[in-house]
């Protein structure tokens, strides 16, 4: 496994598509272990941290990168182009973090359309000052020549909806121990000293956050929901029972139940547990099962205390859910992908 530099270390690439940058930082959350990573791998592409160009990647042979940690969702032509390029150059493609795995916050754009979003951002938002009504023009050209912008997609996609993916590392962002587990396992396997998990595996636990959460769980009947500032929850009892929305009951464990342990309901960033396709559907069905209501009116009254249910249930998983844009009459036509 040598390249033109005579370097025999396996090659590692890291890239961010549509994401906040937290995943990039999370890689550094492995602290001094990053030195082990640097020792084990030859980092060939990490634009956030080091000065690499796309042409550096293009210059590599297909499959020359051993492991690519790809974070961020795919929502424009550039994201997709990089996903395809890195896929072609990499042996192991890892959907790193919630955005690339499930769509995460960028995926919430799928509740609306590109046009409606552009309209809001460039024209209607209270803070917008755009007297000339300028919008990004993908085909923009200066007198000196064309300067195309990446075309914005109507639908945000996950990495595996665009290219095949070997492994998934959940979390917003992933917890450092799992990043370390994956990277060091890959290094060991590439050195012939271990085996990688079967392709398609999610690197994490299989069960839900409840499994790791030390709070006492009782039979549940919820009469109303509270936002965290509205009550001081009992520190030892299940938050959901106390009316604080906690997605832990349907969310993959592996984080150590960090949020519930500090009186915050689980947000659900680790996505669904093993074997579940649609995180939001399971959050809804589970929650609907414990509402203390007999009539439609009572159900409505309880749900009125849960602001933005779509955001609660699909905060992380919308792009990857079964809720595709099936309402053809109302969904804008897609192009650009």
């Amino acid at each position: 496994m040598s390249n033109q530099n005579g370097n025999t270390k396996p090659k590692l690439a890291l890239y961010w598509a549509s994401s906040c940058g937290g995943c990039e930082i999370s890689v550094l959350a492995i602290h001094e272990k990053i030195l082990d990573v640097a020792a084990a791998f030859d980092i060939v592409f990490w634009p956030c941290v080091m000065d690499f160009k796309v042409k550096d990647v293009e210059a590599l042979a297909d499959g020359e990168i051993d492991v690519c940690l790809f974070n961020g969702a795919i929502r424009n032509d550039e994201n997709a182009e990089m996903a395809h390029l890195l896929r072609r150059k990499s042996k192991i493609m890892v959907a790193y973090g919630s955005c690339s795995m499930e769509g995460c916050i960028p995926g919430l754009a799928n509740f609306t359309s590109r046009d409606a979003m552009m309209q809001f951002i460039y024209h209607n938002s209270p803070s917008t000052d755009n007297p000339d009504g300028v919008e990004p023009d993908p085909d923009w050209a200066f007198p000196e020549g064309p300067a195309p912008l990446p075309k914005f997609w109507n639908t945000v996609k996950t990495l595996d909806q665009v290219v095949p993916v070997e492994y998934y590392l959940p979390g917003c962002p992933p917890e450092a121990e799992w990043t370390e587990t994956l990277v060091m396992a890959a290094a060991a396997a590439l050195a012939g000293e271990g085996e990688l998990p079967p392709p398609g595996s999610v690197i994490g636990n299989k069960d839900t956050v409840c499994d790791e959460c030390p709070r006492t769980k009782n039979e549940k009947k919820i009469k109303r929901f509270y936002r965290p500032y509205e009550i001081v929850p009992d520190p030892d009892t299940c938050l959901l029972e106390q009316g604080i929305f906690c997605a832990g009951y349907a969310t993959r464990s592996g984080c150590g139940a960090l949020c519930p342990q500090v009186n915050m309901g689980c947000r659900g960033c680790y996505g669904p547990n093993e074997g579940v396709d649609d995180h939001g559907a399971r959050l809804i069905t589970g929650l609907a099962s414990v509402l203390d209501a007999k009539t439609d009116e009572e159900v409505d009254a309880i749900l009125d205390t849960l602001p933005d249910p779509a955001g609660y249930f699909y905060r992380f998983g919308l792009a990857h859910s079964m809720l595709h844009r099936t309402d053809v009459a109302h969904a804008p036509k897609r192009d650009g992908n």
């Binding site: 839900t208 956050v209 409840c210 039979e219 549940k220 832990g248 009951y249 414990v290």
Partner: peptide, 25 residues
């Protein structure tokens, strides 16, 4: 093996067929 013991199902059964095993959670 994969039940996390969240107890959401406990009150649902119309036939009271679900028990919660405290020791195993």
């Amino acid at each position: 093996e994969h039940c996390s013991g969240c107890r959401i199902c406990n009150t649902m059964c119309p036939y009271s067929a679900i028990d919660y095993i405290e020791e195993l959670q």
